[in-house]
């Protein structure tokens, strides 16, 4: 084999190695930037998914979950009270699985930046998002930064809070804890 073709093979294999390394780092980045999903406790699924999707416990810090389950009589405007034993069991599981949202240390671009900054400042000061809401967490706005601006306008509109908190409006496999961008389908009403 000539030196020239040898060099070409070396170059090609180096290229391949580089490409596969790049691919795996992309895969890793996507993994890191996604929600760490856990199988849901059946009691949690049973009690909490009657009115809304059973959110992944990693989406909020432990302190937020503690406040939420101990204040179910006033649960975002609705009475969702449960007996004491159920509350205790839920609290134990939720706090053990809490706080596994993707780190979003870099400010996002575009429309999401303002909300990200406001919520980040709040979190730094208090350790939890405003009103213990997933949708007011900085990671939530960071992770959604690539959404088209028309959708952001919908999301920023407080009247649309109903649709923001319904992950499964766009994340078709959210109820299974799968938030992969490959399973996102925006409904016609939200399309720009």
């Amino acid at each position: 084999m000539s030196n020239r073709s040898n060099a070409a093979i070396h170059a090609a294999s180096a290229c391949l190695a580089f490409a596969s390394a790049a691919l795996s780092s992309v895969a890793l980045a996507e993994e890191e930037r996604n929600i760490h999903s856990v199988p849901l406790l059946p009691l949690y699924q049973q009690e909490c998914s009657a009115c809304h999707i059973a959110y992944q416990p990693g989406m909020l810090p432990a302190g937020s979950w503690q406040r939420i389950v101990n204040n179910l009589k006033q649960h975002y405007g609705v009475n969702a009270s449960l007996d004491e034993d159920t509350v205790k069991e839920l609290e134990q599981w939720l706090t053990a699985q809490a706080d596994r949202a993707p780190a979003m240390p870099v400010p996002p671009e575009g429309h999401a930046a303002r909300s990200w900054l406001a919520f980040k400042l709040f979190e730094v000061e208090t350790g939890h998002p405003p009103e213990d809401r997933i949708t007011r967490s900085s990671w939530f706005w960071g992770i959604h930064q690539r959404m088209p601006s028309a959708m952001w306008r919908q999301l920023e509109n407080q009247k649309a809070i109903k649709s923001i908190s319904n992950c499964d409006t766009c994340h078709t496999t959210a109820d299974k804890g799968n938030f992969s961008k490959h399973n996102v389908r925006a409904p016609a009403a939200l399309k720009p």
Binding site: A50, C51, H52, I53, G77, K162, S163, N166
Partner: peptide, 8 residues
């Protein structure tokens, strides 16, 4: 029916 707050 449809939950008036969450739409579920």
């Amino acid at each position: 029916g449809k939950h008036v707050v969450t739409g579920k």
